[in-house]
Amino acid sequence: MDSDVQRIAVVGLGPMGQALATAFARAGHEVTVWNRTPGKAEGLPVPVSVAGSVSEVVRAADVVVACLIDDAAVRGVVEGVDFEGRPLVNLTSSDPRQAREMARWADVQGFAYLPGVILTPTPMIGTPAGTVLLSGDAGVYDRVASALAALGERIVYLGPDPARASAFDVALLDLFATATNGLLHAFALAGAEGIAPSEFAGFAAGMGGLLPEMATRFAGQIESGEFPGSRSTIASAASSVRHITAAAREHGLDTGMLDAAQGVIEHAVAQGHGADGLGRLATMFGPR
């Protein structure tokens, strides 16, 4: 066997598990898969071996990669299976608390364990854009890094805290969820005013293009604790959100997300930060 070729097991053949198995196989690794529901491997575009049990798929591998619906499903599948020192890479999504609990459980079980998260959709797995974040035992990461390179060019180890990858994941999903909700709400508001979606889309794309620069600028402000209002102020944002909310309510649109944003902004103004820049709002989401 070529020294660069590894035997990789993929546990779970949902859409992401199928993408993982395909990427590993296309990179030249020997892939064995297992799924609770038989037949999922039949649609794969690459040849793989199919195991009849979790124990069988583990014995066939040098590295075991799990991607299931949640950590409880992973525990239910691998508990009691003798891994004989083989590393278990868990690419199942969870929140940071769950990630820490899973790591403690894996330690009690005696697993060589490494949790991670996948930040790219299935079509990107195995391409240069493929991005996977990992955190936890550095020794386990060193053992599996070469195999995981098949998944993309951004395989990033974030340090020993087993919840760090999950923390990045939920924060990034927070951005995605709220930005997507905001975009769709904007389409609804524009439509209520008779603006065609195709007409609105170009302007919306331009608005979204502001985010990369804002992310970098706000990061510097948050780290320095200085929030200049030279570009825009929280007080002006308060006025803007009131106008948006009024327009949405006039058309009977839901304003829950806008109300929440307005609450944070008004809290900042009440605390004397009306003249500060918008970056200050990142410090205003804690308990009141």
Rank of each mutant, 00 (worst) to 15 (best):
V11G: 06
L13K: 04
G14Y: 08
M16C: 13
M16P: 07
A19N: 02
A21I: 05
A23H: 00
A23S: 03
F24Y: 12
R26A: 00
E30D: 13
T37G: 13
P38V: 12
G39E: 15
K40A: 05
K40I: 03
A41E: 04
G43D: 06
L44S: 05
L44F: 05
L44I: 06
S49L: 09
V50I: 04
S55L: 06
E56Q: 08
E56N: 04
V57N: 10
A61D: 02
D62K: 07
D62H: 11
L68H: 14
I69P: 11
D71M: 14
V74I: 08
R75L: 10
R75K: 15
G76F: 09
V81A: 05
V81G: 00
V81E: 02
R86T: 15
P87R: 11
T92A: 01
P96K: 02
R97K: 15
R97M: 11
R100M: 03
M102D: 04
R104S: 14
A106Y: 06
A106E: 08
D107E: 13
F111I: 04
Y113N: 03
Y113K: 04
L114Q: 14
L114E: 10
L114H: 15
P115E: 07
I118P: 00
T120W: 14
M124H: 11
A129K: 11
T131S: 13
L133K: 08
L134D: 02
S135G: 10
D137F: 00
D137K: 04
V140R: 12
Y141V: 09
V144A: 00
A147D: 01
A149R: 04
A150G: 05
G152H: 08
V156Q: 01
P162A: 15
A167P: 04
L173T: 12
D174G: 09
L175F: 13
T178F: 10
G182S: 05
L184Q: 12
A186F: 03
A192S: 05
A192P: 01
I195F: 15
A196M: 02
A201M: 14
G202W: 12
G202A: 12
P212Y: 00
E213Y: 05
G220H: 09
I222E: 10
E226W: 04
F227L: 09
A235N: 05
A237Y: 15
A238I: 08
S239D: 11
H243R: 08
A248R: 04
L253C: 07
L253I: 06
D254C: 10
T255G: 05
G256Y: 01
L258F: 08
Q262M: 12
E266Y: 14
H267N: 10
V269S: 03
V269R: 02
H273M: 14
H273K: 14
A282G: 10
T283Q: 13
T283W: 07
